[in-house]
Write a protein that binds this DNA or RNA. Structure first.
Length: 551
RNA sequence: GCGCCUGUAGCUCAGUAGGAUAGAGCAACUGCCUUCUAAGCAGUAGGCCGCUGGUUCGAGCCCAGCCAGGCGCGCCA
């Protein structure tokens, strides 16, 4: 929609240059915006103000020339110069009506564009350590990552979802040992003393019991996995199940352990060494990351010969780059922002442009109940799990709430609000918009009114109320919203868009009867309703939220 | 101390690439409505966009400095 208007303005500028009304100098990029005020038209441009210094003429004079050209376009109702030199463009209602027609035609495809031109994007998210269940913070990252992947796909990118499994190193070892102690506890019936850094959650006991059921059964023979292997894989199963129930599936589960097994960690260190980015000091092996903008150099191999976590991370990111993605997205908890510098340093050290890397930081979630914070014991593994929250409020509300705010802003998640079937709950407000439309359509069907697949476009001219035009205009901006959400990697824009759409539709419904004795008007309004329902469903799908038929 | 994020209406938050008189929802106040499903309507009120300076035709947005809150600054993962 905006593209069409951009074209109109551009050709008016070209024409002015051709006719000598403007100098043929460099024309600035045409910026088209949607004015906040209705009186400023459907679109406006500040092109004249940008040209003023180059033309050395008052912006309003230039605006008048351009506006005259724009006004000649058949799609344009009128074109005015306003304020310091804005050009306000008012489109003919027929333009909006044809927009509605094209939305109905595109149906579930409406909202998809080819802005990404098939460029490959990898988005790595969640990547929680398999040492405990997913908590509420992981949930937010999961919702953001998954929805962003949907949005990028809709905007024409080729998206791969990836989960990096930290199945090597100290933490999973400790998990295995924790399970071993619990098993001992069960077998001996005596309480066992647990070291401070061991995992003490209930899930460890469950895994211990599972292990005993499976491998200590009488008459069992054959190979027995290590506690570590068993515990890690059991934890991953749980995580995968939680995610699946949260409607998230990954294309790739990438194992940290496999990096080591394939010798990729060594390869990466060797490559860095060849590039002169490695040195030894105090018995440890260092990556000279400060040469590439990091705060301090980083240890890869400790004096005791152990690798650091970062050593596998450099190998992992080297593999990502080798796969040929044009964009790498990492969704991290805000507590990881200190890692950005070293990863960027690595990419630069390997000779790559680090601007391909985009890191999205997810701020913490504060759970609230009726406006008061829910106390979250951080110690002893007593955190609120994603499972608890999605079981309590439902997946739809949970996902929507995670996506209602910018990722880098703190989120107050009110459990009671999320559950309530009340207008102040934005999830129900939006979903109900869809359900209500389905209900209207089936009511019409009962009355024998069917929505035709093909119709005379002139029928839509009955949609002549300002409110109706307003809804159509909002529908028309959906593609731009998806595109912007994709390019800026801000899924919350879609959630806001949907809340606004519902906020336009509900009042319209309240004031206007759709199914009436006026057959033409009924069809026209049904078509409008259908379009709203389609866009609501398309938007909700991007968020991973269902669009119910009934509520 | 250094780095990152945040600071916008009573509350929770939007604010498009620097544009015009800064918006929404909730809460509050006034008056209505009860429907194709109740999640509504009309109106009112509410603001030093953390503070100070700068950049320019124009700043909530960009720059510098301060203030406040959160997070991070290991040969931890």
């Amino acid at each position: 929609m905006r593209a069409a208007v951009t074209e109109i303005v551009r050709s008016a500028l070209d024409k002015a240059v051709r006719e000598g009304a403007l100098k043929a100098g460099r024309l600035p990029d045409v910026i088209i915006e949607r004015p906040k005020k209705e009186g400023f038209g459907d679109f406006s441009t500040n092109a004249a103000m940008l040209l003023a210094p180059l033309e050395k003429r008052p912006p309003r004079d230039i605006a008048a020339v351009i506006a005259a050209g724009i006004a000649e376009d058949p799609l344009v109702e009128k074109c005015e110069v306003a304020g310091p030199g804005f050009i306000n463009i008012f489109l003919k209602n027929s333009f909006h009506l044809s927009m509605l027609g094209s939305i109905l035609k595109k149906a579930e495809r409406f909202g998809t564009t080819d802005a990404g031109r098939g460029r490959r994007v990898q988005i790595e998210f969640v990547s929680a350590n398999p040492t405990g269940p997913l908590h509420i913070g992981h949930g937010r990252g999961a919702a953001v990552g998954d929805s962003l992947a949907n949005i990028l796909k809709a905007a024409g990118f080729d998206v791969t979802r990836e989960y990096y499994i930290n199945d090597a190193g100290r933490q999973v070892y400790t998990l295995g040992e924790s399970v071993r102690l619990r098993i001992k506890e069960i077998e001996t019936g005596e309480p066992v003393e647990f070291p401070a850094d061991f995992y003490k959650g209930e899930y460890v006991k469950e895994i211990a019991r599972d292990y005993l059921d499976k491998y200590n059964a009488p008459g069992r023979a054959g190979a027995t996995p290590t506690f570590q292997e068993f515990a890690c894989s059991a934890m991953l199963d749980r995580i995968e199940k939680d995610l699946k129930d949260f409607r998230i599936e990954f294309d790739v589960w990438y194992s940290e352990k496999s990096l080591e097994e394939k010798g990729l960690v060594n390869d990466t260190i060797e490559e860095l060494r060849k590039r002169g980015c490695i040195y030894e000091s105090e018995g440890a092996l260092w990556f000279k990351s400060t040469e590439f903008g990091d705060d301090k150099d980083r240890v890869l191999i400790k004096a005791d010969g152990e690798r650091t976590y970062f050593a596998s991370d450099i190998a992992y990111h080297r593999e990502k780059v080798k796969k040929g993605f044009t964009t790498l997205v990492n969704v991290w908890g805000a507590d990881h922002h200190g890692y950005e510098g070293r990863i960027r340093a690595l990419l630069k050290a390997l000779g790559h442009d680090d601007s391909a890397l985009k890191i999205i930081f997810i701020q913490l979630v504060a759970l609230m109940r009726n406006g008061a914070p829910v106390p979250m014991g951080k110690r002893e593994g007593e955190f609120v799990t994603l499972r608890q929250v999605m079981d309590e409020v439902g997946v739809d509300a949970c996902r929507f709430f995670f996506l209602m705010r910018r990722s880098d802003a703190h989120l107050d998640f009110d459990l009671e609000l999320a559950k309530s079937q009340a207008p102040e709950n934005p999830v129900y407000y939006v979903q109900y918009c869809h359900a209500r439309i389905r209900s209207i359509i089936s009511f019409a069907a009962e009355k024998g009114v069917k929505i035709p697949d093909e119709f005379d476009p002139r029928l839509l001219e009955r949609l002549d109320q300002k409110e109706e035009t307003g809804i159509i205009k909002h529908l028309g901006s959906f593609e731009e919203v998806v595109e912007r959400a994709a390019l800026n990697m801000e899924p919350h824009r879609v959630a806001f868009y949907l809340t606004e759409l519902a906020g336009l539709f509900h009042p319209y419904y309240n004031r206007n009867r759709v199914v009436t004795d006026d057959a033409e008007l009924t069809i026209a309004r049904l078509l409008l309703c259908k379009a709203v329902g389609t866009v609501a469903a398309n938007g909700l799908r991007l968020l991973g939220v269902t669009a119910p038929e009934k509520m």
